[in-house]
C-alpha cells in the first residue's frame, strides 16, 4: 500500500445469514456463490481485494444483485464485513469505535443514494445542512456553507423548497449537495442517476464531471450502465455474484477482457470510442511526422487513420512523444466497431 492509497481492502467477505462469521470460518476454500446459497447464506461480497488511490474515480459496475452496493456499504461500514480487512487512510475501519466511526463519516466521507434518501420534512437548505448540524456546527456557519453548496449544484433560489416540490433531477442535486457539504475526501455515489430519465441523466453526468473537475475527490461510483461507466471512469471494476471479475482501465477491459463474463459484457461496446491512442502506443515503435494526442480515442482519429499512409504514427502526451501506434492495429479496432 502506497501513501497514495485511500481505500484498501484485502480479501473482504460479506455474508448474509445466521451467524455468518462462524460459517465463513468453517467454509471450505473455493466454495462458489451457489454452494454458499445452498447452505442458506448469501455472499454479498466474495473475497474482494481492491485499492482506490487519491483523486481516482473507480466505477464499480455489474448487474443488480452482483454485490456492488454491498461492497460500497462495506467501505463506509454501513455494513460490518464478515471477513478480511478494509483500511481507509491507513486506518482499519472495523476496529473503529462508534464515536470514531461517526467522526470519520462527519469529516471524511460523503455518499449519494439512488433514491436520494432526502429527509421529507426538511427544506433543501436544511437537508444540505443536515450533516453539518449533526456535527454541531454553528447555525450561521452551516447556513453559509449550505448556501454555497446549493449554489454549486445549481439550485440557487430553491433553498426553501421541500423535497417533494422538486423534480427527480433536482432532488438528486440536493443529495449531491448534502454529500459535499462537509467537504469530504472520499465520495461514494450509489447509482446516483439510475432513477432519472435518460435526458436528465446525461445532463447530470455532465454536471458531475464539472464538479469533479472542480473538486478532484476520491470517488467510488456505482452504476449498472456501461456507457455511464465509460464516460466517467479512471478504472472500472466489474462484479458478478459478489466477486470482482476484473478491475482495470476502460481501454484494457475492452481490449483484454479477463473472463468470459467480462467479454460478453463488453461485446456490444463500440471499442473505437473507448480505446485511446495512449494505450495503443508502444515505446519501442519509432515513427516520424505529426504526432496524435494520447487522449484521443480511435474514433476521434478515424479520418486520419484511413487517410494517413504511415505504418506507425507517433503518439504524444503533453507534447512529448511517448511511442508509436501501429496504424493497422488501430484500423482493426475501428473496423470491428463498424
Amino acid at each position: 500500500m502506497t501513501a497514495n492509497t485511500v481505500i484498501s481492502c484485502k480479501n473482504v467477505w460479506k455474508i448474509f445469514g445466521n451467524n455468518p462469521e462462524a460459517y465463513l470460518s468453517k467454509m471450505p476454500d473455493g466454495h462458489s456463490f451457489d454452494d454458499i446459497r445452498k447452505d442458506g447464506y448469501i455472499a454479498g461480497v466474495k473475497d474482494v481485494s481492491i485499492e482506490v488511490s487519491r483523486g481516482e474515480m473507480l466505477v464499480i459496475m455489474g448487474l443488480s444483485g452482483s454485490g456492488k452496493s454491498t461492497l460500497v456499504r462495506c467501505f463506509s461500514r454501513l455494513h460490518d464485513i464478515t471477513g478480511g480487512t478494509i483500511e481507509v487512510e491507513g486506518q482499519d475501519i472495523m476496529s473503529l469505535s462508534e464515536k470514531e466511526l461517526i467522526d470519520l463519516r462527519r469529516n471524511k466521507m460523503g455518499m449519494v443514494f439512488q433514491s436520494f434518501g432526502l429527509l421529507p420534512h426538511r427544506t433543501v437548505l436544511d437537508n444540505v445542512a443536515f450533516p453539518l448540524e449533526m456535527r454541531g456546527q454553528d447555525k450561521h456557519e452551516r447556513r453559509a456553507r449550505a448556501l454555497e453548496v446549493v449554489k454549486l449544484v445549481g439550485l440557487e433560489g430553491r433553498e426553501d423548497y421541500f423535497p417533494r416540490e422538486l423534480s427527480g433531477g433536482q432532488q438528486q442535486r440536493v443529495g449531491i449537495a448534502r454529500s459535499l457539504a462537509i467537504e469530504p475526501d472520499i465520495w461514494f455515489l450509489d447509482e446516483p442517476f439510475s432513477a432519472l430519465d435518460p435526458l436528465i441523466r446525461r445532463e447530470m453526468q455532465d454536471e458531475f464531471l464539472r464538479l469533479q473537475e472542480l473538486l478532484g475527490k476520491t470517488i467510488v461510483f456505482i452504476t449498472h450502465d456501461f456507457d455511464e461507466a465509460l464516460r466517467l471512469a479512471d478504472r472500472i471494476a466489474i462484479m458478478k455474484d459478489g466477486a470482482v471479475e476484473q478491475c482495470d482501465t476502460p481501454d484494457q477491459i475492452v481490449l483484454n477482457p479477463a473472463t468470459e463474463y467480462v467479454r460478453k459484457f463488453t461485446e456490444e461496446i463500440d471499442k473505437a470510442r473507448v480505446v485511446h491512442a495512449g494505450v495503443l502506443a508502444k515505446a519501442d515503435l519509432k515513427a516520424t511526422g505529426d504526432p496524435v494526442d494520447a487522449k484521443a480515442s480511435v474514433q476521434d482519429l478515424a479520418r486520419l487513420l484511413v487517410q494517413d499512409k504511415r505504418k506507425t504514427i507517433p503518439v504524444a502526451r503533453d507534447g512529448a512523444v511517448i511511442g508509436g501506434m501501429d496504424r493497422a492495429e488501430a484500423l482493426e479496432i475501428l473496423l470491428e466497431a463498424g
Binding site: 456499504r73 463506509s76 454501513l78 461517526i102 467522526d103 463519516r105 462527519r106 469529516n107 466521507m109 460523503g110 455518499m111 443514494f113 439512488q114 433514491s115 436520494f116 434518501g117 432526502l118 429527509l119 421529507p120 420534512h121 426538511r122 443536515f130 450533516p131 448540524e133 449533526m134 456535527r135 443529495g175 448534502r178 454529500s179 462537509i182 461514494f188
Partner: peptide
C-alpha cells in the same frame, strides 16, 4: 422508514439519538 434515508443519516454522522430524533421519527410522521 426507507433504508436509504437511514443510511443517509448514518453517512451524515448521526449518533443513535440524532438518528432517532432527526431521521426516524420525522420520516415515520
Amino acid at each position: 422508514v426507507s433504508p436509504e434515508v437511514v443510511e443517509a443519516g448514518n453517512m451524515s454522522g448521526c449518533t443513535r439519538w440524532q438518528l432517532l430524533r432527526h431521521v426516524y421519527l420525522p420520516s415515520a410522521r
